[in-house]
Design a binder for these strands. Structure first.
Lengths: 190, 190
DNA sequence: ATCGCAGGAGAACGCCCGTTCTCCACCCAC
DNA sequence: GTGGGTGGAGAACGGGCGTTCTCCTGCGAT
C-alpha cells in the first residue's frame, strides 16, 4: 500500500485548500492538485468523484476550521462584552496571515454562485452559522434585540473581511472593533 | 459602414457588462461576448486588443456608473446627516435590482486579484473612491474624526453588499442604515 | 469598371480543462 | 509461483479557451 486512504485524502485537501484559496476555484485544474498533492489522478478521482465534489469538501473543511478558530478566540474571554470583541481580534489575527485573500465562501460564491446551487448554499450556510454565533453572544451580553445587534456586527465583520482583502492591510479589523464598541455602547445595558 | 465604431463599442461593453457581472469574468469567453453583442470577433479585437483590456473597460464603466448613481442619491438630500444616510438608500435600491450579484470589483478581485495586478489596482481604486466620498460627507456633517467615521460607514456598506449578494435579500441595506444611525449618533455633534 | 480595403462568418491554432482509459509494476492470498 | 487486483504514470478524449487567419462580400474612390 503506497499511501493510507486517510493520508491521501488529507494531502489532496491540503493541496486543494492552498490552491483554490490562492488562485480561485476555476483557475485551478485537477492536474495542479494532482502534482501539488502527489496523489495520482486515478486515486484523486476515487477519493473525490468530481471537481465539484472536491470543492464542496474544500469549503466544508474551511467552514469547520474557521468556526473552531473563532470559537477558540471567543472562549478565551469570559466577560460577555469582551467575548463579542474577541470576534474582531480573531479577524485581526486572520487578516495578518501571509496568504490572507478574503473569505473563501465569498470568493467561491462570486465565481460559481450563479452556476452552482451547492456552492451558493454552502456560502449561505457558512454565513448563517456565523450569524447564529453572534446572536448567541449578543443574547449572553443581554442585548435588548440580539438579532439586530448580531446583524450589525456581521456587517462590520464582513466589511472588514473584504476591505482587508482588497487593501492588503489587517487594519480594517481594528476599525471594525472600534465601531463595534460604539454599537455595543448603544445597544447593551450599561 | 455596418456599425459606427462608437455604437459597436457600446454594444460590446453592454454585453460584457451583463455577462461578466452575471457569470464572472473567467467563465465568459470572448465568443459569448461576440454573439451577445452582435459584433464580429475581428472588430471586437480591434476595439479591445485583449480580454484583459476589455475587463478593464468593463470595470471602468462600472466604476463611473456606480459613482454617478451614488452621487444622484446623495445629492437628492440636503441635510448633511441625511446625505450620509442616502448612501444606504442607494445601496437598498441597488440590492433590489433583479440581477444584483454583489460588487463587480470584489468579485473580479476574488477571481483575478492574485494573478492580475491591474484588476487588483482597479478594485483598490474603486473602493478608495468610495472612501473619499464618505470622508467628504463625514466632514460636511461635522464629524470630529471624519476618516474614522468614513471607515466605519464603509465597513457597514461593504458588509451589506456581500451579505445581500449571498442571502439574495436587500434587507442588509436597512440593517446597515440602522447601524449607521447609531454610529452617527455617537460620532456627530448633536 | 475596377481597385482596394473594411468588415463579416467562421475555421484554425495551440493550449488547458475535467474526466477516462491504457499499460505496466507491484504485492498479497493461495 | 501464479493470479488478481490495486495503484502509479501518463496518454487520450472531447470540448472550450484567447487569439489569429482565411476567405468572401460589398461598397466608396478613382
Amino acid at each position: 500500500m503506497v499511501l493510507e486512504t486517510a493520508t491521501a485524502q488529507q494531502q489532496v485537501l491540503d493541496a486543494a485548500d492552498a490552491l483554490f484559496y490562492e488562485r480561485g476555484v476555476q483557475a485551478v485544474g485537477m492536474d495542479a492538485i494532482r502534482s501539488a498533492s502527489g496523489v495520482s489522478l486515478k486515486r484523486l478521482y476515487q477519493l473525490f468523484p468530481s471537481k465539484e465534489n472536491l470543492i464542496e469538501a474544500y469549503l466544508d473543511r474551511r467552514d469547520a476550521l474557521w468556526k473552531s478558530m473563532l470559537a477558540s478566540h471567543v472562549d478565551a474571554a469570559t466577560d460577555p462584552r469582551s467575548r463579542i470583541l474577541a470576534v474582531f481580534e480573531f479577524l485581526h489575527d486572520w487578516f495578518r496571515q501571509r496568504d490572507y485573500r478574503g473569505c473563501a465562501f465569498i470568493n467561491s460564491f462570486g465565481e460559481l454562485g450563479t452556476v452552482s446551487p451547492r456552492v451558493a448554499e454552502l456560502a449561505l450556510q457558512h454565513k448563517e452559522g456565523f450569524r447564529q454565533a453572534l446572536i448567541q453572544l449578543s443574547t449572553e451580553a443581554g442585548a435588548a434585540d440580539p438579532e439586530r445587534l448580531a446583524d450589525h456586527l456581521i456587517l462590520l465583520s464582513e466589511g472588514a473581511i473584504t476591505r482587508s482583502a482588497i487593501s492588503g492591510s489587517p487594519d480594517p479589523a481594528l476599525r471594525a472593533r472600534e465601531a463595534a464598541v460604539l454599537l455595543l455602547d448603544a445597544s447593551l445595558p450599561s
